[in-house]
Design a protein around this nucleic acid. Structure first.
Length: 413
RNA sequence: CGGGGCGUAGUAUACCGGUAGUACGUAUGAUUCGGGUUCAUAAAGACCGGGUUCGAUUCCCGGCGCCCCGACCA
């Protein structure tokens, strides 16, 4: 991608009304556009990152047997009345509106009801189970106070998977597989070392739910972490008996602020009962389906990555989700060589953001490269050519090294 | 939802009851060419509604919006 073809621009100054680090950098870098509080549009650079995160999650969900589909955003009232969650006194974050014909509808704020309602039509036998459908979609919550940039939105993009199992035992096996899948996701997007599986309140069907909490001072949640054991306990269940139950010691637990980047939940028959979601067993008995829910907020995850991996110059994207693998800077007097290099890299399938602007100073281009945060920066200039090739520098490295032009493609492959 | 703060060019800010100033960005022309170079010129602005006043961007009221603290958060 040529820089001159991107319609977004970087900004030197941070918006005054965005004190959160993630939104500040994402807006300055031209990754997102703020529509209103808690609502962001994804610009070309931001969408590339979001798509890469999505691809990683999709891959991990498919590996555990997930089946991607897409539930609707508009939801009818009667479906939600079955679970009792249509009532504003029960759920106060609804966005509701009316149909021309008079009916009331809502914009989905979660998916349990939608899935239960759909599956009621398709599940009737033990042969139909287990199944693990999931989707990526925009979710709407009328938050009284959205905040912290991408971390708590009114409209956000998430992945939700629901498991439909025959028995508690079958559910438990899948639940464990999802723990691993989630670990993989956070490792692959580059924040695994800061992300801890955290025990949180479980509701009526299990002792605990599990949250995946990424440690950062800007986090909203308070957790107690045993870094050695790789386990955390959410403040909401931080009690002596819980610590003992998890075989942890109070001395090893350190209080930290963290962002909840994902959670997994055993639902039991909480939703299958009101939706009458049952199956006929091989012993000819009617049994309720055992459910679980597994969510990851992708837009929040993207914000969390920025929050924990950025430095004073800008964003620092892990290669797996960077908008481009390398940022090629052409300086005065080397545009022909830079063009050639861009073509060679592109032909080799390497993603390049090529700063081909002819009216910007070197300093400005370097500042933009740091802000945008691609893992590798290449500089082609008369100076680099005189030194024998192209300058290559990792985003977090101080000093560049010279690589021969002919060796660059191999170096980056 | 309770409390607090704030709404001025695209962005960041200043002043003011009487012609709204600056910087960044943008445009044009020079200049410079390895960490946001320098200079000239130009375009571009008071959230909405009401009130007070000869006159309101400024004061008052209401609305809307934004930010922060708290509450809430499958």
């Amino acid at each position: 991608m040529r820089f001159t073809r991107l319609f977004t621009k970087t900004r030197k100054e941070a918006p005054a009304d965005e004190p959160s680090r993630n939104a500040e950098l994402l807006i300055r870098g031209g990754f997102v556009f703020k529509e209103m509080a808690g609502v962001y549009s994804f610009l070309p650079l931001g969408l590339r990152v979001l798509n890469k995160i999505e691809a990683i999650i999709r891959d991990e969900m498919n590996r555990v047997g997930g089946m991607e589909m897409r539930t609707s955003v508009l939801q009818s009232k009667d479906v939600w009345e079955k679970s009792g969650r249509w009532d504003d006194k029960v759920v106060d974050t609804w966005f509701k509106t009316k149909l021309k014909t008079g009916g009331e509808i809502g914009l989905s704020f979660t998916n349990e009801e939608a899935y239960s309602n759909i599956l009621k039509q398709y599940v009737s036998s033990y042969k139909d189970l287990p199944i693990y459908p999931y989707d990526f979609k925009n979710i709407f919550r009328n938050e009284a106070r959205s905040k912290s940039g991408m971390l708590r939105g009114r409209e956000f993009y998430w992945k939700a998977l629901y498991s439909f199992s025959r028995t508690e035992e079958e559910h438990a096996v899948f639940y464990e597989a999802m723990k691993t899948a989630y670990r993989n996701v956070f490792d692959r997007v580059g924040i695994g070392h800061l992300t801890f599986m955290t025990f949180a309140s479980g509701g009526s069907f299990s002792k605990f739910s599990h949250e995946f909490q990424t440690i950062t001072p800007s986090g909203e949640d308070t957790i107690y972490v045993d870094e050695k054991a790789g386990i955390g306990i959410n403040k909401e269940v931080y009690r002596d008996e819980v610590i003992a139950d998890l075989k942890l010691s109070k001395e090893a637990l350190v209080e930290k602020k963290a962002i909840e980047v994902g959670n997994i939940f055993s639902l039991g028959t909480k939703f299958s009962q009101p939706f009458d979601l049952q199956y006929q067993s091989d012993g000819d008995e009617m049994k309720p389906v055992v459910m679980g829910s597994y969510g990851i907020g992708l837009s929040r995850l993207m914000g969390a990555v920025v929050e924990v991996l950025s430095d004073d110059k800008g964003m620092v994207w892990p290669e797996t989700i960077a908008p481009f693998k390398c940022h090629l800077v052409a300086l005065e007097g080397a545009s022909e060589e830079a063009d050639r290099l861009y073509d060679a890299l592109t032909a080799a399938g390497i993603e390049v953001l090529y700063d081909d602007r002819s009216d910007k100073s070197a300093g400005e281009k370097f500042a933009d490269a740091d802000l945008i945060g691609c893992p590798v920066r290449l500089v082609v200039s008369t100076k680099s050519l005189a030194a024998g090739g192209v300058e290559l520098k990792g985003r977090t490295e101080d000093k560049p090294r010279i690589v021969q032009e002919a060796a660059i493609v191999e170096e980056l492959s």
